[in-house]
Amino acid sequence: MSGGETPLFEVRDLRVAFGRHGQFHEAVRGISLTVRHGEVLGIVGESGSGKSVAMLAALGLQPEGARVTGSVRFKGQELVGMSRRGLRKLRGSRVAMIFQDPLSSLNPVMTVGAQVAEAVLLHNSGISSRAAMKRAVELLELVAIPQPDRRVNQYPHEFSGGMRQRVMIAMAVANDPDLLIADEPTTALDVTVQAQIMQVLADLQHRLNLGLVLITHDLGVLAGQADRVAVVYAGQVVEQGPVDTLFAAPGHPYTRGLIASIPNMEVEKERLFSIDGTPPPLGRLPAGCPFNPRCTQTRDICRSVVPPVRGAADHTAACHFAFGISANTDNAA
């Protein structure tokens, strides 16, 4: 890691556990990652891998009854354990988050303008509501919504899916945040619209020098967008590295599987590839490497010993046979 500059967002051994009456199961089992100022980090994993829960928990938005441990530092400030008021001050102003389904993520009985203006009003105590509304119009224009002064008084159901997501983005960048976390921002949208939204995000990221965390289950989306990628499986980061090297020389079999699943328009293939099997349910992880039941290269050691993190400084993978290196036999039981 380059020395000197403090990372914008640094997560270390984040764990989130659910349960009741003493029985707790971890959905996030020690996730560590870093985002630098102006950097785009992609987090990829299947549904249920814990990637969304981790980011929600990092901002203090985890569901009722969840236990969060570990360290999350934002510009050097520790977020885990911070007071609710402190977190509220950061959320929506310095750190913002947008979600997957813009229809259900927007209040159906409030106008779009009121909701965007609210983001402004919440963090600028002196501002008048008229000024906030003006800013809302400016923000709608920023995300390329046509006729913003008219549309600002419309309700969410009067917008198309793509437009709604632009509204969400406008709300998120209202106070010029340093970090934006986008949780599957295009999953609920049509394919044609997906590209547009990703473009909006990319533009804003460049213009505002935003740190951006892109959560997705589709590795292909990250190819042109991310600087670095973290692959999550069963609540842990199983590989992370610069996007180009990750694609060119993936260290973890899961990553290889994900890459192979990306539909490739240029090469003629008979069938679409997908990884066999499904992710393990919470609390019932296999012994050893959590991926071993679905891995094509699994060996004995994989079924008994949890793999260590291997690899070079900025590209690591948690596999006994990462990067083609044979397993360290003295790790075997």
């Binding site: 209040n107 159906p108 409030m110």
Partner: peptide, 21 residues
Amino acid sequence: REFILTARAKGAGEFRVIVRH
């Protein structure tokens, strides 16, 4: 519902979330 999460992510306090949203 989701939009409650959005409101909290924006930094709205509990009272506002409950009453206004």
